[in-house]
Design a binder for these strands. Structure first.
Length: 566
RNA sequence: CGGGGUGUAGCUCAGCCUGGUAGAGCGCUUGCUUUGGGAGCAAGAGGCCCCGCGUUCGAAUCGCGGCACCCCGACCA
């Protein structure tokens, strides 16, 4: 490709909206253009990178035995009603209707549709195992798109779904997908770690996320330096810090003016936060609940939601708090009758906690579960935090932030049951297929490749995702020997399968070098009278900055080397 | 949905406080010159100052109401 013909506009300065480095470089290198919040156009150069990432994904999915299909993005809303997800997806689902008022959704994911396809084709245990995948545009009406390509409303996802006759088969399909993912991220130059993840209210067994660690990530990841355990904060298992031991004492009422928070209360009474009981109010599927947890801990809302088997969990609005007779800042389960009480084991097992008296400026000392109050439901939903101890080896956790690149998930039979993916087993018995699902966000990978591979001057593409293999800079193209050398290298590259981007523009040399660094192809070859006079072509490695003057054959060999090195 | 910020030329921004016919740098066009790190000289083009209402003789500027975009949080695969 000749740059004089290429639709490309690089920017000297970063647009003000870009905060992340990947976002800045995507815009400066002219790879994408924003159309609306969370919706992007891809330029010819940007689209080539996109396609190369897709290509890696396709090769590795095919290698793992998965088969590519194409499913509609436009889907009848009935399909979503059948699985119940028209409600659980809530406002995230883009909805529309056709001219006859029939309801449709733009697919945010494809479990329902792939189940439709599978239900038609899978009738016997002999039809499995099978894994189907596609590379499709997904639509999600995110509450807040952000971070350039990190969270967008229209994006490309590689989504795969496995169908097995039993859970042992699912384990094998899951491992195959997992291994394919390891190869995909490695080839694309995105360092990731697998972490344990929440499997959601749907249930299911194992769920792991492939996380790219970066301070600008939106997920909190807990890492155990002792045993290597790694988990998303919403999933992380940890050892509860111990309570202060003691035999139950008589409950007493105490005047505690102006102590609406645990910190204020603990300081006023000169006690530790773990000697208090915290009350938090939620609305779970419409019903107000009071959640009790030891004062030094926070609620893990995902675990709480799973415990309640709720599809919606939101903080209770202030008006509803008052209507339920709850006194914010001084609430507790003691003496409370009209509201459902859910307690964390930490609050149930500890003795002599200070809890709210359900009266402004008063607390109760020495409250004890069983004697003074009783939970309707008890569970384990404290949030693991930095420094908490690993449930496996008791080492203190470290926390990092990260971005979810991919997710592998043992779904089980939830969708096969609701969508009717059934088969006959060896004994002629009708059973639901056991499913797994596996997703990768293509644009997130693109952003992560840049986050992980850049310097002050621009992008440094890993060889496998670079939009072209070689950046040829022609200086003084009006001179015949330069022109001839450029043509000759272009042909030589083409004949061995290297793609080239040739800067044949009439701009000054400095402009071309700056653009080459910004665009970031792995190898830059400068062809100029000066280089030719020195006996060859000037070959520069983008990553190391190393420069050599080589003859055309040695240049090709060098390109091959860099390409092989990734 | 809560909190914060920003909307002026393609991009980065000044002007706004103190109302009086729209500015800079970069980019773009033309000509000449130029080709080793965003080069030089000269001449140009380009704006519904986010939108609406109001105050005023007069609004980019003051007031009210919207909208869009960005950041934090909530939430979200």
């Amino acid at each position: 490709m000749r740059m004089s013909k290429l639709l490309l506009k690089t920017l000297r300065e970063s647009p003000a909206e870009a905060d992340l480095i990947s976002h800045q470089l995507l815009l400066r290198a002219g790879l994408v253009m924003p159309l609306a919040a969370g919706i992007y156009c891809y330029t010819p150069l940007g689209w080539r990178v996109h396609q190369r990432i897709e290509q890696i994904i396709r090769e590795e999915m095919d290698r793992s035995g998965a088969q590519e299909v194409r499913l509609p993005a436009l889907q009848p809303i009935e399909l979503w009603e059948q699985s119940g997800r028209d409600k659980s997806m809530g406002e995230t689902l883009f909805r529309l209707s056709d001219r006859r008022e029939r309801g449709f959704a733009l697919g945010p994911t494809h479990e329902e549709v792939v189940s439709f396809m599978a239900s038609r084709a899978i009738q016997s245990y002999r039809d499995m195992p099978v894994t189907l995948y596609q590379v499709q545009t997904k639509f999600r009406d995110e509450q807040r798109p952000r971070g350039g390509l990190i969270r967008v409303r229209e994006f490309t996802m590689k989504d795969a779904y496995s169908f097995d006759a039993d859970w042992e088969g699912l384990d094998r399909s899951y491992d195959d997908a997992f291994n394919a993912y390891v190869r995909i991220f490695d080839r694309a130059g995105v360092p990731v770690i697998p972490v344990q993840a929440d499997s959601g209210a749907i249930g299911g067994k194992d769920s792991q996320e492939f996380i790219f660690l970066t301070p600008s990530g939106e997920d909190q990841i807990l890492l155990c330096p002792g045993c290597g355990y790694a988990a998303n904060q919403e999933k992380a298992e940890f050892q509860l810090p111990p309570a202060l031991p003691g035999d139950p004492q008589p409950m007493t009422r105490v005047h505690t003016p102006g102590t609406k928070t645990i910190a204020e209360l603990a300081s006023f009474l000169a006690i530790e936060p773990r000697q208090t009981c915290k009350a938090v109010f939620y609305r779970a599927d419409g019903q107000p609940i009071l959640v009790a947890i030891r004062g030094d801990l926070d609620v893990n809302e995902v675990k709480l939601k799973n415990l309640l088997k709720a599809s919606d969990l939101d903080p209770l609005e202030d008006a509803a708090v008052r209507a339920a007779g709850l006194v914010a800042g001084y609430a507790s389960a003691v003496g409370l009758e009209r509201v459902r009480i859910v307690a964390d084991v930490s609050a149930v097992e500890a003795t002599n906690l200070v809890a709210g008296a359900n009266e402004v400026d008063y607390h109760l000392q020495n409250t004890n579960h069983g004697r003074d109050w009783k939970a309707d439901l008890v569970g384990n939903f404290a949030l693991a935090r930095d420094g908490d101890r690993c449930a496996v080896c008791q080492s203190p956790f470290e926390t990092r932030r990260g971005i979810e690149m991919g997710h592998v998930f043992k779904l089980g039979t939830v969708y096969s049951e609701s969508m009717g993916v059934n088969y006959l087993d060896e004994s002629g018995e009708r059973r639901p297929a056991v499913m797994g699902c596996y997703g990768i966000g293509v644009e997130r990978m693109l952003a992560a490749v840049i986050e992980a591979n850049h310097d002050d001057n621009g992008i440094i593409w890993p060889a496998e995702v670079a939009p072209y293999d070689v950046h040829i800079i022609a200086l003084n193209l009006d001179q015949p020997e330069v022109q001839q050398a450029v043509d000759s290298l272009e042909n030589a590259c083409a004949s061995v399968g290297f793609t080239t981007l040739i800067d044949d523009r009439s701009d000054a040399a400095g402009v071309k070098f700056k653009d080459a660094d910004l665009i970031g192809l792995p190898i830059r070859v400068t062809i100029s009278p000066r280089a030719l006079a020195r006996g060859g072509l000037e070959v520069r490695d983008r990553r190391s900055g190393q420069v050599e003057v080589l003859d055309p054959d040695a240049t090709l060999a060098r390109i091959r080397e860099v390409r092989a090195a990734g």
